[in-house]
């Protein structure tokens, strides 16, 4: 029954190319706003303490930002499809601990790291299975998973930190070098290798979300799940993929930080959950799904890192820092609410 819908371009005049694409700033007012905020915050910090705006501190800051960024990239996809993943911080700590433990037990470092990565993907698979097949809200599933995975971390570590180089017996020196190369290498100009990991994966995720059919459908599913069902988009499959990607990113972040530090302990990742969510939300994602951008997430992660690093440098203390970052996150979202009008959605008017 072809022919009743003439094929592309058969009946219509060819594209004249007259469609004007609005400027980046117009399409992404939020990103511009965030960059201005980052600039202003950075200026203030450097006035209070000149040590903030030094090459050394900046490099350390973007290094620390990379694991936050990797987690946020994974979470962005989970959030745009309309789900939540609270277990990513726990996966971060667990996979590092698991990889380190099996490595110390004699497995070669490469398979050990792959086991860690696989474990992250597997936890993501469980999250997806419970959310889609069992129909339990992802908030509950991943909250439970957060606890269960933290328990696993304590179980395999005996609640003690590990340092493979000083383990008994220590890991082979060759393997140690491979391991350290992944996260602790300094590139020319002293650029930490972790920054390259973040940039590379950010570009990959940008293509995935904004330039592939997969990303287009993620946005559709998150925007309106019943409509996606009516359009026969494979909702379950898409959710499996994003949860598993989220788990993989958490594992990657955890093991890269492990590599950078050379050691890990059972509490690793616990303090990451808030900044990761804050970065994604400040970056413009809506918790109900359908709207999120990779650039927003990255800029959001940058703002959170600047705040965290700057507040430490000016020495306000951990407690005040926590209060300030929490308040700033709420403030950023509130500002956004007041600045942009609420968009009408179809089917609302009678």
């Amino acid at each position: 029954m072809n022919g009743r819908q003439p094929d592309e371009g058969a009946t219509f005049p060819p594209d004249t190319g007259a469609r004007r694409r609005p400027a980046f700033a117009v399409r992404n007012p939020r990103v511009i706003g965030l960059l201005i905020a980052i600039f202003l915050v950075g200026m203030s910090f450097s006035i209070v303490n000149p040590n903030f705006l030094t090459v050394r501190n900046m490099l350390g800051m973007v290094r620390a930002m990379s694991s936050l960024g990797l987690l946020a990239l994974g979470l962005t996809l989970v959030i745009i499809v309309g789900e939540l993943d609270l277990s990513i911080g726990a996966i971060y700590g667990f996979t590092a601990m698991l990889a380190g433990t099996v490595w110390i037990d004699g497995v070669h470092v490469v398979p050990a790291l792959l086991i860690g990565l696989g474990a992250g993907v597997f936890v993501g698979f469980l999250n997806a299975a419970l959310t889609t097949w069992a129909g339990i809200p992802s908030f509950i599933v991943t909250l439970g998973m957060l606890n269960a995975v933290e328990g696993m971390t304590l179980l395999i570590s005996g609640a003690r930190g590990i340092n493979p180089k000083y383990a008994e017996p220590p890991v082979p020196a060759g393997e140690w070098d491979i391991f350290r190369a992944l996260g602790a290498t300094k590139l020319p100009l002293d650029i930490p290798v972790q920054v390259v990991w973040l940039l590379g994966l950010a570009i990959l995720f940008w293509v995935l979300l904004h330039r592939t059919l997969f990303g287009f459908r993620l946005a559709a599913i998150g925007s309106n799940t019943p409509a996606a069902r009516a359009a026969r988009l494979s909702i379950t499959r898409h959710k499996f993929i994003v949860f598993m990607l989220g788990g993989a990113m958490a594992a990657a972040a955890g093991m890269l930080d492990f590599s950078f530090l050379g050691s890990t302990d059972p509490s690793a990742g616990r303090s990451l959950l808030f900044p990761v969510f804050a970065a994604v939300i400040v970056g413009g994602a809506t918790l109900t799904g359908g709207r999120a951008t990779i650039i927003g997430t990255i800029v959001g992660a940058l703002l959170l890192s600047v705040l965290s690093n700057g507040l430490s440098i000016i020495g306000v203390g951990a407690f005040a820092k926590s209060i300030f970052i929490g308040t700033a996150t709420i403030g950023a979202v509130m500002l956004d609410r007041f600045t942009y009008r609420k968009r009408a959605r179809p089917g609302q008017a009678p």
Partner: peptide
């Protein structure tokens, strides 16, 4: 192809007109 009665269940609110037209 199927379309529900309620446009709240047939259209993607975060999309513009062009994306909505090709969403399926």
């Amino acid at each position: 192809s199927y379309l529900p009665a309620d446009r709240g269940e047939s259209l993607f609110g975060d999309f513009d007109v062009g994306r909505s037209l090709v969403a399926r």
